[in-house]
Each structure stands twice: as C-alpha cells, then as structure tokens.
Amino acid sequence: MGERISGEADKGGATIRIGTRGSQLALAQAAEVRARLMAAHGLPEEAFAIEIISTSGDRILDRPLSEVGGKGLFTKEIELALLERRIDIAVHSSKDMATAVPEGLSLFAYLPREDVRDVFIGRSVETIADLPRGARVGTASLRRQALLKRLRPDLDIVTFRGNVQSRLRKLEAGEVEATLLALAGLKRLANEAAATQILDAQSFPPAPGQGAICIQGRDGDGAVETLVAPIADAPTGVALGAERAFLAVLDGSCRTPIAAHAVPDGAGGLAFHGMILTPDGASVHETRLSGSAADAEALGREAGRRVLEAAGPGFFAGWAD
C-alpha cells in the first residue's frame, strides 16, 4: 500500500491513502478528491491509494437509521481507520457527519458544493402532485419523509435503505411508486436524467451539508492539512460552518427531521434558512436570517436557538428518542 505520508508531501512516490465507503457514489467522491489533489500538486494517480472501508450504515439495511444509531453509522469505521493511521485522509458526504467530530480528528476542507436540491423520481408519474392518494414512497430520510408528508399527508412513506443504484432498482421493480434522492449524488454518478422532478430548495430545503464533500484528517498532521489546503473551497466552508452550528444547537442526527441551507452572497454576506419538523410533517418551525459570512457559526447557532424557542421544550420529546 506504500509508505505513510509524513513530513512534507512527497511528490516522489509516497502513497496518500484515501479512506472511503465502497458505494459507487462514495468512490466517485473519493476520485474527485484525488483528481483535485493531483491537479493541485502535479501528482500522478499512483501517488494515491483509495481504501474502501465498510461501515455499519452500509451493512445494516433492514432498519431506519433513526433506530440503529444515526449519522455516525456511515463514518465511525472510517474515522477509526484515520485514528489508527491506516489511512491519511477520509472523504465523506458532509450530510453524513455527526455534529461532534471524534477527539483527535478535524474537518480539513470542503470541496466546492454541488447542487443542494432533492429530486423526486416517479415510476409512472413525474411529480409529487401526480401521485395517487395512498401511493407508497420510499425514503431513508426522516427529513424527506416529514417534508413529503407536509405536502401530501395521504402518502404511505416506507423505509427505503441502500445506495443510489439499489434504490433505483427497487423503484423499477415496483416496490414503491416513487423515491427521493439528492441531485448532487445523481450528478456525480452522471445519472441526473433519472430525476422526474427537481424540488425547490425554499419549499423543500436540504439536509445540513447536502451536496458538499468533506475531507477529514488527524489533528496535528500538518503535512496532510497542507496537502488539502489548495483544494478547500472557502464559500462552502462558510455555508457548512453555519449549517453544522445550527445542527449542533438542535443536537441533530438522523433521528430528527432538520433542514438547513446557508448561501454566501459573494460580498461578505450570508443568508440562512433553517427548519425543524415532526416526522409526520404536521408541525413545522423555520427561520430565515441574514448576516456576515465572518459570523457564519454564530448565525447558525442563533437560528437554532430561534427555532427551539418557537417549538418549545417538548417538540423533540418522544419521537426523537
């Protein structure tokens, strides 16, 4: 597998080990990180080794994430490999990241964000409005479930786990009438055409971090931090700082339907939209704030405090356990 990178990044042959999940989407994301690092440093592809690490989230497919541990199921084995120095960097979908990063690790960089919107994919209809009453719709996301039930309380929402390809196969086989996926993932898989309706981010806001790839490394690993610095996208970092701060105030996980979208305006400003819902979509609290991009995390925290205050202390009780 080559030697572990140490000291300054070695352009003469040291292997930089990139840890990732094994789905086609995860591999596409790792390949994008590798390509950007190659271009930034003039490194050959042989300077990198993509290490596939199986996660609990990949193995447990028969239950909702909310029942088996939440977001960390897609990251903890990869983070352990990083802590044990079996890999040099970890590549994750930012929306899979728990609010608390394990001690000894940090998020070093975010790549430029892809489209944040969700898409509806119908088997025999093109839009949510076209679905017949009581139609079965498959999703693994409590946020998508709640937003969908908010629009169409008559629908039958069923748990739909698995990677993008397996969900599309289940849809084609008729297990459900429709499903919802992230447009960013379809784009990275060159399968954007599968979408039958692109959902508006204002009325159907994304998960915190949706569309953003993050790179995680070990604290104090200056060589790796220097290596990834040239490919870090500052506007995405600002947006994710606000969204993750909002999530942290709410103690959010896959157990709670939470949406957040921060948009830097390019002139030092930041617009933030946050929302919390009950799983049935019947109760919704949202806030929209604007402020300075330099205060992104404070803006996210304030948005979190506002929706919590509006919702009251019992909002997450019972169903969020």
Rank of each mutant, 00 (worst) to 15 (best):
R21S: 12
S23K: 01
S23P: 00
Q24V: 08
Q24H: 13
L25P: 05
L25H: 11
L25A: 01
A28R: 08
Q29W: 11
Q29V: 10
Q29H: 09
A30Q: 04
A30H: 08
A30R: 00
A31I: 02
E32V: 05
E32N: 13
V33W: 03
V33S: 02
R34M: 04
R34Q: 15
L37W: 07
A39P: 01
A39S: 05
A39L: 00
A39V: 00
A39F: 00
A39C: 01
A40P: 04
A40T: 01
H41C: 04
G42A: 00
L43S: 10
L43G: 02
P44E: 02
E45Y: 02
E46T: 11
E46G: 07
E46I: 02
E46M: 06
F48G: 06
A49W: 01
A49E: 15
A49S: 13
I50C: 08
I53N: 02
S54R: 14
S56M: 08
S56F: 13
D58C: 07
D58K: 03
D58T: 06
R59M: 13
R59T: 13
R59F: 14
I60N: 12
L61P: 04
L61T: 11
L61G: 00
L61A: 08
D62H: 11
R63Y: 07
R63V: 14
P64F: 04
L65N: 07
L65F: 12
L65E: 15
S66A: 10
S66K: 09
S66G: 05
S66H: 08
E67Y: 06
V68P: 02
G69K: 11
G70T: 02
K71S: 13
K71V: 07
K71H: 15
G72S: 10
L73H: 11
L73G: 06
F74G: 09
F74E: 14
T75V: 13
K76S: 14
I78E: 11
E79H: 15
E79C: 10
L80H: 06
A81H: 12
L82K: 09
L83H: 10
L83E: 07
E84W: 12
R85S: 12
R85E: 14
